[in-house]
Computed example of a mutant assay.
Amino acid sequence: MTNNKKDLLKRYLIFLAGLFVNSLGVALITKANLGTSPISSIPYVLSLNFALSLGNFTIIFSILLIVLQIVILGKNFKPESLLQIPVSIAFGFFIDFSMILLNALNPQMYAAKVAYLLIGCLILGVGVYMEVLADVVMLPGESFVRAVVARWETEFGVTKIAFDVSMAVIAAAASFFLARELNGVREGTIVAALLVGFIARTIGKKLHFLPGMLFE
């Protein structure tokens, strides 16, 4: 096996591992019952009101984001970006598996919920860092933001914040419409939005030497 193929294999293995770690973080944040991460908020609200699982709605929502990327980018949409489809399916199954693994976790005290939330954010931040480190495929949420940036030449950071806020607002509106109360979007959604990216960036800075050690 050539060095390039070995590097690519390592990258995909790291990405898949990061995807699973990511799903564990999402599941733990969700089990804290203080809201979930912004990108998962719409699938979570839908899962609370319909028969499909969080993982299944995550897959459906991800496919929608991929379709929107195609609409936004048109002929500039790259065929390799269709790899987001199997990645989304795997991520959805990982989320459902992680929810089953953590089924026994049902914190009642607020302090315990906050602890689970913070640990979940840390785990999710590690998963995001692993996906960035692999640098092979992006999840549809980030790819959608990049598509908007490419199409309208906006600033990535501002666009990402606007996207996260939009997801939370839409999820809250859907919750009020479907259940006549706010479920699935709470203070934990805000905490996750602020912490996860910060954790991933901090890990990246601390382990700046790692890509050079792992890849040729």
Rank of each mutant, 00 (worst) to 15 (best):
I199S: 04
V114K: 06
P86W: 13
I60K: 08
I95L: 06
G127L: 11
N4C: 00
R11H: 11
G157W: 03
R11Q: 13
L8V: 12
Y12S: 14
S143I: 00
M1L: 13
G212Q: 14
L117T: 10
I190G: 12
S98V: 04
F57N: 00
G120F: 15
L64E: 03
G184C: 01
P38D: 09
Q69K: 07
V67D: 13
E131W: 02
P140S: 11
L122D: 01
E216A: 04
D164V: 00
I72L: 15
A111Y: 08
L194F: 00
M138V: 07
G197N: 02
K5W: 13
A193Y: 00
M109C: 06
L83S: 09
G35M: 10
R180S: 15
M167P: 06
I89Q: 14
L65D: 02
Q69T: 02
F94T: 05
F77P: 04
Y116N: 06
L117M: 14
A150D: 15
A32M: 02
R11F: 07
T189L: 11
G18N: 05
L133P: 10
Q69F: 05
L207V: 14
L13T: 04
L122S: 05
I72F: 11
L101S: 14
S23A: 15
Q108F: 08
N56C: 01
T154D: 04
L102E: 12
T58K: 03
I190M: 09
L178T: 11
K6C: 08
F97C: 15
G197A: 06
M213Y: 13
V128L: 14
F97V: 12
E131D: 09
N106Q: 13
A112T: 14
L178Y: 12
A200H: 01
N33W: 09
G120H: 11
P211I: 07
S41R: 05
G35E: 12
R180N: 15
P211T: 06
N3D: 05
S41T: 04
E155D: 10
F61V: 09
G125V: 05
V158G: 11
A179T: 07
H208E: 13
S175R: 11
I66Y: 07
T30P: 01
A111K: 04
V137K: 00
V114W: 10
R146F: 12
K10F: 15
G120C: 09
F209W: 00
I39K: 03
L105F: 13
N49T: 13
P38T: 09
I66P: 03
N103V: 03
D164R: 00
S40E: 06
F20V: 12
E187N: 13
P79C: 02
V67H: 08
E155V: 10
P140T: 10
Q84C: 03
L101V: 09
N3V: 10
K113P: 01
L16K: 00
I89E: 07
S143G: 10
L64V: 07
M130G: 10
S81D: 02
G141Q: 02
I123E: 02
D96M: 05
A134L: 09
L8T: 10
V145P: 03
V128N: 09
K78G: 01
G35W: 05
E187S: 11
K205M: 06
A147G: 14
L82I: 05
V149P: 05
I100M: 09
S41Y: 05
L19D: 09
G74A: 06
S37V: 08
V26Y: 09
L68Y: 02
A174P: 03
